[in-house]
Design a binder for these strands. Structure first.
Lengths: 204, 204
DNA sequence: GTCTATAACCTGATAGAC
DNA sequence: GTCTATCAGGTTATAGAC
């Protein structure tokens, strides 16, 4: 039985370029990123990038769609589980988001700022247009607090989870918070955010 | 007594360019904005832009600093007022932020995404490095809930207020929310957010 | 101050050798 | 598949006339 040729396998050229594109696009955004940066980061030549992917834009859309799925997938996988209670869902969403964002801290700002200008058409690929509104999560929110617009609660929940990462640079400066302290605070939020959401749901 | 020459006075050329720069930079961001766009928007020639402002970057920094002040000024003006209670501060911050952001919906995403890449040095100009931490607001939070890191509460408060505007495009798509409905929801949040913050502060 | 014309540079993409 | 060399087009910035 032949084992893998390399324990740490070299990535294919195509994958090396994609990986470099992820890094450069996420750091600089589409407009500021140069294909030359990506080629250099991948350790290959500029011409090769256009050989594998037709253009800068094609390569970008690949990365963008992937990152949108990553960002929206966290919630999509949880809100329709009929077997979990509202409180369990809150805990799961918080925990999954914080874990994913701690590993990918600049993901939300990337997706949101690219959606602002130029990539609006990509929103349409994600047919959440009802997927959230008809979810089990939504129904449970409405049942618990029929007096509150569930979208307001969703905004608050996601704001609590995503905003610290969106505002990370300014928050670290203003609050005098180092990297380690930031990560510790985010870990605490896995408990804090669901607890606070429950407090909101109980408030008269 | 001579009255003003024009009831609606023409802006000076310099101010016309600045106004155009605000519009174009906020919509597209620094990298994607072209000086030609700004000149055209201002109704003047490209050369004139460089005559008044030395370069694209100088013009950008002018706009960027102005917008950072606008974004941070809302909270700065409130948190050190010794004459208001914690609950009053929460109401004031919420109300002022929602009003300002409803009038300038793409301000926070602009500032935050430009700070991510390339404008980090501008953070230093704002010596909030203690301004928040030593504020009356902070002390009141600590007094009320000594068991909670006040920074966590600030993150939650600002996330509640700013995040809806940061995520506006995707939220409107996913939630099937039109412009009018969005504005109405934000108006509601002037009441909801302080109420929910109070619920959090009371939770055991 | 304001314009036209152009310089100087940069960027995405391709041609063509290997 | 991968490289070097280069093209074509766009961008910021400036020179110089008015």
């Amino acid at each position: 039985m032949p084992r893998k040729k390399k324990v740490i396998p070299d990535l294919s050229t195509e994958e090396k370029i994609k990986e470099a594109a992820r890094k450069v696009f996420l750091k600089k955004g589409y407009a500021a990123a140069r294909t030359r940066d990506i080629a250099e980061e991948a350790g290959i030549n500029l011409a090769l990038l256009n050989y594998y992917f037709r253009s800068k834009e094609k390569l970008f859309e690949l990365v963008m769609v992937e990152k949108m799925q990553k960002l929206l997938g966290v919630i999509a996988g949880t809100i329709n589980d009929e077997s979990t209670s509202l409180e369990e869902k809150l805990q799961l969403i918080a925990s999954h988001y914080i874990d994913m964002l701690t590993a990918n801290p600049d993901l939300p700002l990337f997706v949101l700022s690219e959606l602002r200008s130029g990539s609006e058409h990509l929103i349409k690929r994600f047919q959440f247009g009802g997927m959230l509104l008809k979810s089990s999560f939504f129904k449970q929110l409405q049942e618990k607090r029929p007096d509150i617009n569930p979208l307001q609660l969703v905004l608050t929940l996601l704001g609590n989870l995503l905003f610290p990462f969106v505002a990370k640079p300014i928050f670290q400066a203003v609050g005098n918070v180092g990297q380690k302290e930031f990560d510790a605070m985010m870990a605490d939020r896995k408990i804090l955010v669901p607890k606070w959401m429950k407090a909101i749901l109980k408030s008269k």
